[in-house]
Simulated assay, not measured.
Amino acid sequence: MTTEALRLYYYPGVCSLAPHIALREAGATFELARVDLRTRKTEAGEDFAAVNPKGYVPALRLPDGEVLTETAVLLQYVADTWPEAGLAPLHGGLERVRFDERLIFIATELHKGFAPFTIMPNAGDEAKRWASQRLTARVELLARDLGERPFFHGDAFTVLDAYAFFALRVYPKLFAAELPANLAAFQARVAARPAVVAAFAAEGLKA
C-alpha cells in the first residue's frame, strides 16, 4: 500500500464530470489530473496511455496504484467506498439491481449513443438520423422514469443522478432540443447542488 492520493483523470465537461461530482458528494479527498485528449498527456506531463491504455477518461487511480476505468464502474466504486453518503442502495437486494440497471441504461443507451455526433469519424446522415431518433426515445424514457420524483432513485441524490446530469447536459447541445419539463427541472436542481457547483468551478465550466 502506498500513500498516493486518489486521483481522477478528467477532461472538462465530458463524462468524467459524473465521477467528479460523485467524489465531491461523497466527501472524498482526491486530486484532479487534467488530460489533453490529443497528446494523451496530463498537465503534469504524465503519460496517460500508461495510466489507461484505452486512451479515454475517466480513470481513477486508487491509493494502492490500481486504476479503475469506465464511468459507471467509477460511480459504483464511489458509492460503495463511501456508503455513508447514501449514493446508491447497498448490495444484496433487488433495489440495488434495479439501480444498477438504470445506471447501465444511461451508460449504454444514452451516453454511448452520442458517438455518431462526437467521436465517430465519418458517420453518415442515415446513421445520424437513426441515432438521433433512438436518443430522443431514450430521453423520453428517462422523463417517464423520473416522473414527479426529485431524483431518479427517489428523494435523495445518488450517483445515478450524477450520470444522468452529464448525459442530459450533452443531449440538448447536440440537437438544439429542449428537454421535457421534468428533466429540465431535474437539471436545474442538480446544477444548484454545492458539489456540482464546486466541480464546475474546478473544471472551469459554466453552469
Rank of each mutant, 00 (worst) to 15 (best):
A33H: 03
A33W: 02
R34A: 15
R34K: 10
R34P: 06
V35E: 01
V35H: 02
D36A: 07
D36R: 02
L37F: 13
L37A: 05
L37K: 11
R38W: 09
R38S: 08
R38A: 11
R38G: 10
R38H: 14
T39L: 13
T39G: 13
T39D: 13
R40L: 12
R40C: 06
R40K: 15
K41N: 10
K41Y: 09
K41V: 08
T42M: 06
T42F: 05
E43D: 14
E43H: 07
A44F: 07
A44C: 03
A44I: 10
A44G: 14
A44M: 04
G45A: 06
G45Q: 10
G45S: 11
E46R: 12
E46Q: 10
E46V: 15
E46P: 00
D47A: 14
D47E: 13
D47Y: 05
D47C: 11
D47S: 12
D47W: 02
D47V: 05
D47G: 07
F48H: 05
F48R: 05
A49I: 14
A49W: 13
A50F: 03
A50K: 15
A50E: 14
V51W: 00
V51F: 02
V51A: 03
V51C: 03
V51E: 01
N52R: 01
N52C: 10
N52K: 01
P53A: 15
K54G: 09
K54C: 08
G55C: 10
G55F: 11
G55K: 09
G55A: 15
G55R: 06
G55T: 11
Y56A: 13
Y56S: 12
Y56F: 15
V57P: 06
V57E: 13
V57F: 11
V57L: 12
P58V: 04
P58Y: 01
P58F: 09
A59N: 01
A59P: 02
A59L: 10
L60C: 00
L60H: 00
L60W: 00
R61Q: 08
R61T: 01
R61E: 03
L62Q: 03
L62E: 03
L62C: 02
P63C: 07
P63N: 12
P63I: 02
P63A: 09
P63E: 06
P63T: 07
P63G: 14
D64A: 06
D64H: 10
G65A: 10
G65Y: 00
G65M: 02
G65I: 00
G65S: 03
E66N: 05
E66T: 15
V67W: 01
V67C: 05
V67K: 00
L68K: 00
L68E: 01
L68V: 10
L68T: 02
T69S: 07
T69L: 09
T69W: 02
T71N: 06
A72L: 04
A72P: 05
A72D: 04
A72F: 05
